[in-house]
Design a protein around this nucleic acid. Structure first.
Lengths: 173, 173
DNA sequence: AAGATAGTTGACATCGTTGTCCGTTTTTAC
DNA sequence: GTAAAAACGGACAACGATGTCAACTATCTT
């Protein structure tokens, strides 16, 4: 399979979802509900992203995670490297056991292709992904700092995957 | 990791090595010695290639495997499909959970890139790989049908990885 | 200080990949 | 017919990817 692992896909979804929540702490539970990623597994992925320096976390009551820098300053190469390691684009496509340069008949082609992929993934940021998901109703709703949408138990409610995609986040933030 | 599995790399090496042996039955043992692939595991891979219709095998004394068609008629797409299944190039690079078309912001870019990879791997045949390996001394030697190079035990000897790369296979075949 | 909340961490389960081992089956040589 | 050779096939082991679960720790509310 020539592609990213499922875990990396999860991470991208989670970060895009998180980026749509504005500048606030977001709980893993919210992200899980919004994306459909298994909760406990998502926690591990988020923790990996924290240790990779892409997220900041806060424990305890009203804790959560948030981006360490604005979404337009986090590119997909950062995410890929955090989840798959620095060597996520192999030197040789075919994997014959040869030396570094001139490793196989595709060496030149693959080097060029690899560069193109890397460039593309470097210029593609979390904001792009966020907007893409937003247009399809798969990000968190607006911040809701005024608690006006808390339910009877006093818990916050959030926009799940079933949100009618009402045209993106309102002007807040 | 965006690349083929190790098993697929093994298969390519094995087939290239086999193609360098001319039109004869070659034993798995020979290929293992030539390529360095673990013997028992190579047997499984060869068996997979037999069931995929790329190899023909013959059991018993003086048995072995051979290509079902000449190496210039076997392309890398055939091998990839045999080992990794038909879906070895995913529809969506990022793996967000969206619909088929317009699956992510990279949909157009990835479709084009995917096509380029597929085209390149379709026009690259086993003969190309074979020649590449031959120039580096990693294919089987000439057929040796006359048994003139059998050792004291009556076993055939073959050109292992330590062969001095004497300029490719002689004129035979 | 007590209790609730939410991230952290380690143990465990499941499955595919990679690989080893051994017995079975088929074919040839004698 | 017997023995050797070689592919075939299933059981097993090690490891990473993918998940689940429970205990622990940090933080906030009261």
């Amino acid at each position: 399979m020539i592609g990213f692992s499922q875990t990396t896909g999860y991470a991208i979804q989670a970060l895009a979802c998180l980026a749509g929540g504005g500048d606030r702490l977001v709980q893993a539970k919210e992200i899980a509900a919004c994306t459909g990623i298994p909760g406990p597994y998502l926690s591990k992925i988020l923790n990996t992203l924290v240790r990779a320096g892409l997220l900041r976390s806060k424990r305890g009551y009203r804790g959560g995670v948030e981006l360490v820098r604005p979404p337009e300053q986090i590119c997909l190469v950062d995410i890929a490297a955090a989840l798959e390691g620095d060597e996520w684009l192999p030197e040789c496509l075919l994997g014959l056991g040869m030396a570094q340069d001139d490793c196989c008949p595709l060496a030149e082609f693959w080097k060029e292709t690899r560069t193109r992929i890397q460039e593309r993934l470097k210029e593609l940021t979390l904001r792009d992904i966020m907007r893409f998901m937003e247009e399809r109703g798969r990000t968190l709703a607006a911040p809701c700092d005024d608690a006006s949408v808390a339910d009877a138990d006093g818990r916050r409610v959030w926009a799940g995957a079933s949100m009618p995609a009402g045209g993106g986040a309102p002007g807040a933030v």
